[in-house]
Amino acid sequence: MKHRFALAATAATTALAGAAFAEGHGGTMRIGITQNNVGVDSYQTTYERAFIEAAEANDMVETVVLDAGGDVARQIAQMEDLIQQEVDAIIIWPTNGEAVIPAVRKAFQADIPVIVTNSNIAEPGFDFVASFSGPDNITQGQRSAEIMCDKFKEMGIEDEAKVVHITGQPGYTTAIERAQGFNDRLPEVCPNVEQIDQQPGDWNREKSQQVMEAFLVKYDDIDGVYAGDDNMGVGALNAAKAADRAEDIIFVGATNFAVGYEAMAAGEYWGSIYQSPVDDAQAALQTAIDVLNGEEVPFLNYFDTPKITQDNMDQFTKPVF
């Protein structure tokens, strides 16, 4: 298998193009991927490594692996470059679910199937996408709300608890959907729990620690913290520990990072959602291959992400990211 890095990439399309590929293309599948921001956290770093390994294990696949570095303009340029290269399929991990739609449309118009990975684009772009491969982020937010509510009920504070919420990067579909799932589900399962504040942590541990420091100054009574991933959740935990208030707060996250798993093992962090970047990467590549082979692929091709808490964490291996 041939593997190379390029400076830019892009694409978008339909399953019909995949069927045409299967009928008329007897050679190597050339698949481009433009990622969100590999350097921002260990999940994305592990995803990229797993994607490359999966592609290298398939002699029929050649990849162009790109990273937008969190820059929407760069990702759009990468999409346009991939279209010019006439790759067979494009995988995009969107930097912004709205802003990338025109580039995805261009790929679609060029008969290049687009697979969205990990974080979906906004609904107006769905017509230009062959499939979404990744987690159901709304369900993840709902499950995190259930984890928190169950713990409050166990503690007997479900009628008085107050919660603060640290979200991911504004405009990023995963952040929007996890927040939506949590915000919609918490009042259903614990109607008397009050969410007193919500601020973005941008998937960054240091910024999330600063957000939590501000919450701790502003609010004397905080019973729970929900963070859109464990990287941010541990940042919040660190702020609470520094203020000597961590023992009074239940921390719940999503995307169980190694640091979250370790904090759970230490009894400092209550629960999260177990999500593997290796599964994520392998599923995206396989979805692209299936589309190019003309196979039927669900538009929303989810993989499962179960609840993990201190009570059942022995059933899960420590994350590698």
Rank of each mutant, 00 (worst) to 15 (best):
H3M: 15
F5A: 12
A6G: 12
A8F: 00
A12T: 05
T13Q: 12
T14H: 15
T14K: 09
A15Y: 03
A19N: 02
A20G: 08
F21N: 11
H25S: 13
T28M: 14
M29L: 14
R30H: 13
T34Y: 03
Q35M: 10
D41E: 05
Q44F: 13
Q44S: 07
Y47E: 10
Y47S: 02
E48S: 06
A50E: 07
A50C: 07
I52K: 11
E53G: 04
V65S: 03
A68L: 01
G69A: 09
G69Y: 00
G70D: 06
D71K: 00
V72R: 04
A73Y: 03
I83R: 02
Q85A: 02
Q85F: 00
V87F: 00
A89S: 07
I92S: 02
G97A: 14
V100S: 00
A103C: 11
R105M: 09
R105N: 02
V116Y: 01
S119F: 06
I121G: 04
D127P: 06
D127K: 15
F128I: 10
A130I: 00
D136K: 07
S144V: 14
A145Y: 14
E146L: 14
M148N: 03
I157D: 01
V164C: 10
H165F: 08
T174M: 09
T174S: 15
T174P: 09
E177F: 11
E177Q: 13
R178H: 02
A179F: 04
P187T: 13
E188C: 05
V189T: 14
P191S: 08
N192S: 10
V193H: 05
Q195S: 11
Q195A: 08
D197A: 12
Q198L: 07
P200R: 07
G201P: 00
D202P: 15
N204L: 07
K207H: 11
S208Q: 05
V217W: 00
K218H: 12
Y219P: 11
D223I: 04
D230K: 04
M232I: 15
G233A: 06
A236W: 05
K241E: 15
K241Y: 00
A242S: 10
R245Y: 13
D248E: 13
I249P: 12
I250T: 12
F251W: 05
F257W: 15
F257I: 02
G260F: 04
Y261D: 10
E262K: 13
Y269H: 15
S272P: 08
Y274D: 11
P277A: 00
V278S: 00
A281V: 01
Q282T: 10
Q282H: 00
A283W: 12
N293G: 07
N293P: 03
E295I: 12
E295N: 14
E296N: 05
E296M: 03
P306T: 04
P306V: 07
K307D: 01
N312D: 08
Q315P: 09
